[in-house]
Nucleic acid binder design. Structure first.
Lengths: 240, 240
DNA sequence: GTCTATAAGATGATAGAC
DNA sequence: GTCTATCATCTTATAGAC
């Protein structure tokens, strides 16, 4: 890691979701609440760009302006640091997503629509992607790459996200009476792939479309994804 | 890279696609045609599992049963080796995919369907994924991860794959009269994500569905993807 | 909590013999 | 083409001072 393409990750202003507030740590208002949070922000940025093996603890320590020994003091090993980065925001995200799905199910009653369920599932991601600042963008890029990793990606994703995804699939099943479980899972696989690519914001689409579309235009990305996926779910799950 | 989860990548028997034959190197029948091909096979396997930075040239040399100096002799630098791995099969794939799209366009004439175009685009991937052996599976997993990388992924993908994707989008445009370019690109973005996740075969779906669906069931994966994406394209591109 | 110092080993790359 | 030998550097991690 010799690149110098790094602007320090400023902290997230801990906004509330449209669904419910959150607790956890003492709400120290804004800014990295301490050195360990600063280290996490820097590590999150670097890991999201170069992967676990592409970043040394020296890179992180230098960029954070502290010594490597301090990283070991806080997180034990390099892998411990990486795991702490993944864990931090995924806990927030899971609470938000579950709350969003629950709120929609409550409001819609038996009038669930496939679009509505998918929208409720995606809203927290759109929210944090747009309003969470660079830290959340780095986190999403990191998750996007973890999801593509064949060795530890599958296990990591399962550990952190399976619960909320099962809740999603349950609601989708309600919105698609008679759908077979296999079809629901396969259809979700397609949505999951699109979502993974979206949160990565790799700029791939920008280049491909010669600037016509921008990866960073999350509002459009999520609007299109909802429409695309809802039609896809119906088509896949409709077969008698 | 300390893992020992590695079975040596046996070579691909250079099959022909259903669309057209291929040339290139002297068709030395089967097996790694030489030491450099063996090195590429091993590197492909390891890189696909641990990424560029997760594998040392010593790992590759040891697994291939040669000295590290030999890798430098053939490929110059570690990055040169990585690039050679990516390039090798992408050239084959591009020829196949372009030929498949051209053949479909010729056969269908002005009776193009969205399903038909997507199917023609995906067929070569299904073919090599099923019949290409472990080498092709490793290559696909590698591409899947490259596509998720925000630093060099976008550029790498663009360099190797944009031409054939533009051809795909042109044909999709024909099959969807009146579709706006933005909508076509955004819809493709969704298909691209699903495809990326599919070729990765990470086993994520297996765990999520508790064994009901298997990532390695490529026939089903591509069948569902075609149906899902065709409906998605129509829904996204239909808005007046 | 934060630093200095340092151990113990892995890494990419090259020169040169065969 | 393939190997031996080697360099200079970077790596993670720890012990212990402040």
């Amino acid at each position: 890691m010799k690149d110098k393409d790094l602007q320090v990750a400023t902290a997230t202003p801990a906004p509330r979701t449209r669904v419910q507030g959150r607790r956890g740590r003492p709400p120290k208002s804004a800014g990295p609440s301490g050195t360990s949070e600063l280290i996490l922000d820097v590590a999150e940025d670097l890991f999201s760009k170069h992967g676990l093996h592409g970043v040394s603890i020296r890179d992180v320590a230098n960029e954070a302006g502290v010594d490597t020994a301090l990283l070991h003091y806080y997180f034990g090993t390099k892998r411990g640091l990486f795991d702490a980065v993944v864990k931090r925001r995924s806990e927030i995200l899971n609470i938000d997503r579950m709350a969003s799905l629950d709120a929609y199910a409550r409001e819609a009653g038996d009038q669930l629509t496939t679009e509505g369920v998918i929208d409720a599932f995606l809203q927290p991601l759109l929210y944090w992607g747009e309003k969470g600042g660079p830290g959340w963008k780095h986190y999403f890029a990191l998750i996007s790459q973890a999801n593509a990793n064949p060795v530890w990606g599958g296990e990591t994703m399962a550990r952190y996200f399976d619960t909320v995804i099962h809740r999603l699939i349950d609601l989708l099943k309600e919105s698609l009476p008679g759908a077979r479980d296999e079809d629901l899972y396969w259809a979700y696989h397609n949505l999951s792939g699109a979502l993974t690519l979206t949160i990565g914001e790799t700029g791939r689409l920008d280049r491909l479309s010669d600037g016509l579309c921008r990866s960073g235009d999350l509002k459009t990305a999520y609007t299109v994804m909802t429409r695309f996926a809802a039609a896809g779910f119906r088509a896949v799950c409709a077969r008698a």
